[in-house]
Structures are given as C-alpha cells and as structure tokens.
C-alpha cells in the first residue's frame, strides 16, 4: 500500500519541476526507475498514480514508464559481480557475506516527456 504515497510523491516532484522550469505543456510520460529491492508492485503503483493524476491538469494524460532495475551485487572478498535472482545476500562463488549492493535500491523520477 506504500505505492499510494509513492504515487503522490511522484506527482509532487513532477509538479515542482514544471513550476520551477515554467513548463505549461502537458506531460505525456513520466519515466521512473525502481530497483527490485524496493518491493514496489508496478501495477499497484500505476493504478494509484492513474487515480491521483486526474486532479492535475498537466498530468491527467500522462503515463508512468517504469524501468525495473535488477539487484546487482559485488563480493568485496573475491570481487565476483552478479545479479541476485533469489533473496540470498551472499557471494555465489566464495559464499562470503561481505557483499555490496551496486544496484537495486533505486527509486527516482528519471525524466518526463512533454506532449507536443
């Protein structure tokens, strides 16, 4: 259910940027990057966003474009770099627990595409 607030935050951020940059055109697309670690369900987020966008004239026709990032980690002992498919946070090669998450924690508005 945190998707509801996340959708709200996306709208706040995009509206702030539109005001700051004095953009009056409508927004066609909002590109969002979400790491797999964040436990966000894209369908739920899109659903929450589509309900809330209707109250904002510049966003009412916009769509969320969601890019999902895999969880990629690096072992600090053997330097092995790999993608995590299952929730196991240790090195697949040397079994060390000394791993660092390189990507998968992202949650940001990357860009917006304006209507013509």
């Amino acid at each position: 259910m945190h998707e509801l607030q996340i959708a709200q935050n996306i709208i706040i951020i995009v509206n702030e940027e539109l005001v700051r940059r004095q953009v009056r055109k409508k927004v066609r697309e909002i590109a969002l990057v979400i790491g797999q670690m964040r436990a966000i369900i894209p369908e739920t987020l899109r659903f929450s966003f589509n309900i809330q966008k209707k109250r904002h004239t510049q966003l009412e026709e916009s769509e969320l474009l969601i890019r999902e990032n895999d969880i990629v980690v690096k072992c600090n002992d053997c330097q092995h770099q790999f993608k995590i498919q299952e929730p196991q946070f240790y090195c697949q090669k040397c079994h060390s627990a000394n791993i660092e998450i390189l990507s998968g924690n992202e949650l940001y508005v990357d860009s917006i595409e304006l209507a013509d």
């Binding site: 996340i6 935050n9 996306i10 706040i12 951020i13 995009v14 940027e17 940059r21 953009v23 055109k25 969002l32 949650l107 940001y108 508005v109 990357d110 860009s111 917006i112 595409e113 304006l114």
Partner: peptide, 14 residues
C-alpha cells in the same frame, strides 16, 4: 520534448 529530472521519490521523507 524530454526533461531530465533524476529526483529520489522519497527525498522529502529522507
């Protein structure tokens, strides 16, 4: 037209 934003969605909370 594309506008680059790159802002964390939870920035206000953080």
């Amino acid at each position: 037209m594309k506008i680059q934003i790159v802002r964390d969605v939870l920035e206000a909370n953080d």
